[in-house]
């Protein structure tokens, strides 16, 4: 098999595992996400534990990879090179937080939810994709 097949196969398995993790954690349920964001009401700290667990494992992988010349499937590690805290970063994150807080959906859980055939998930995803394309269109100009 060619290298790009292995890259796609491993990405497919990672996508599956990511989605199963979201389902296991209860994060594909927007009500649970809103329960975390609602710190003034009855507070559900679950999302914090999800992030702590995920960050802990990913931290080890990033740290370990610094000693590796290339990835296990022989590609270059694509370290993000941007470090500046810019206006688009903060403005974009603020808009993202507003949308996330309105319904409790972010891209990963929305894709999982859409995969279950949820009309709500599909509507969210269609407009999210329009949002992606809008930004790409104006940034390309």
């Amino acid at each position: 098999m060619k290298k790009h097949w292995f890259l796609s196969l491993s990405a497919f398995i990672c996508g599956l595992l990511f989605g199963l993790g979201l389902l296991m954690a209860g994060m594909a349920n927007p009500a649970k996400v809103l329960g975390f964001l609602d710190i003034a009401g009855l507070w559900d700290p679950s999302l914090a534990l999800v992030m702590i667990g995920a960050i802990a494992i990913a931290f080890v992988a990033f740290w370990y990879s610094k000693k590796m010349p290339q990835s296990l499937l022989k590609t270059k590690f694509n370290w993000p090179d941007a470090t500046a805290i810019t206006r688009p970063l903060l403005a974009g994150s603020a808009l993202f937080g507003l949308g996330w807080g309105l319904v409790g959906l972010c891209p990963g859980p929305a894709l999982v939810l859409a995969g279950t055939g949820s009309v709500e998930g599909l509507i969210f995803i269609v407009f999210m994709l329009i949002g992606f394309r809008l930004v790409d269109y104006f940034q390309a100009k």
């Binding site: 970063l89 974009g92 994150s93 929305a110």
Partner: peptide, 16 residues
Amino acid sequence: LAAAGLLVGIGARLGS
């Protein structure tokens, strides 16, 4: 849902 999806899409892309 549509408004939130649009905001999340624009925001995530703009905010990288």
